[in-house]
């Protein structure tokens, strides 16, 4: 035994991950023992069964088409929504009068819970990818728009004025001042709306689809397969975490110059 130097790490402080991992393990152990005894195996699955199913899905390739479907819906809908939001924000922020006239309409439209349109979209657009894409885009548009609009309208007017004085055209001002200055707002709007995009895609898939992670949830519930249900929830958790993390990394990368 060596004598611990006084500057060494205090022995009683645990690494944070040790605590988290033990919480997860204890919870898993509880469910492992409780399912079948206290908890109804009709609704709850043993963690070992869930893990085995996940391993089977990942090696057998069953899960990948479903992940790909949900990701495609989110990617297309997200791109569409962000694109429309940027155009709307640039147009409305260029005219104070136009903005003041239309803003109440935008706010009212934003107040409508977009999920209420799901039955209509399914009815008119079918069980395919289109109904999900539209729902995801709608969920994203307003959040990104309101964020970017706030960014565009809080730019220091002196920057704009001095460029105009130097003879810059409105387009040049837009590209060189307005958009770079409000990039942080756009990116944070995208990061916040990612959660709504995933929720929108899954909600429509639950109600009507033949592939995708939401479809798996609906199927597992209907067939009373709790292991499938929990395995899909794990996949969804990882996916949701990965999307948010990726957007956070993008945000940090792009905004690195600001320090």
């Amino acid at each position: 035994m060596t004598v611990r130097a006084p500057s060494g790490r205090a022995p009683r402080t645990l690494q944070p991950w040790v605590l988290s991992v033990s919480v997860v393990l204890l919870t898993a152990l509880f469910f492992q023992l409780a399912v079948g005894r206290v908890l109804d195996p009709l609704w709850f699955a043993r963690p070992t069964d869930v893990l085995a199913l996940l391993a089977q899905w990942l090696t057998g390739g069953f899960i990948y088409p479903h992940i790909a479907t949900t990701l495609t819906e989110i990617a297309i809908g997200f791109g569409l929504g962000v694109g429309v939001a940027i155009v709307l924000a640039v147009v409305l922020s260029s005219s104070a009068l136009l903005a003041r006239i239309t803003m109440p309409l935008v706010v009212a439209a934003n107040s409508l819970p977009k999920v209420a349109l799901i039955p209509f979209f399914i009815f008119t657009l079918g069980v395919g990818i289109e109904s999900k894409v539209v729902q995801v885009a709608l969920n994203v548009i307003f959040i990104v728009f309101l964020n970017l609009y706030a960014g565009l309208t809080t730019i220091n007017p002196r920057l704009r004025e001095s460029l105009a004085l130097m003879g810059a055209s409105p387009f040049e001002i837009l590209v060189k001042v307005k958009l770079p200055a409000s990039l942080a707002w756009l990116l944070s709007g995208m990061r916040i709306s990612a959660r709504y995009a995933l929720a929108g895609a899954v909600a429509v898939e639950l109600l009507s689809s033949n592939r995708g992670l939401g479809f798996l949830i609906a199927k597992a519930t209907a067939q009373l397969e709790p292991a499938q249900l929990f395995a899909t929830l794990v996949v969804l958790a990882v996916m949701g975490f990965a999307i948010t993390y990726a957007l956070q990394v993008l945000e940090n990368r792009v905004l690195a110059w600001r320090i």
């Binding site: 988290s20 997860v24 969804l236 958790a237 949701g240």
Partner: peptide
Amino acid sequence: RAIYPVALLCYSVPLVALAPP
């Protein structure tokens, strides 16, 4: 330190997915 990462992971699940169960 023990619970926060676990809560964050649970929060990553779109909770509407729990509507059917």
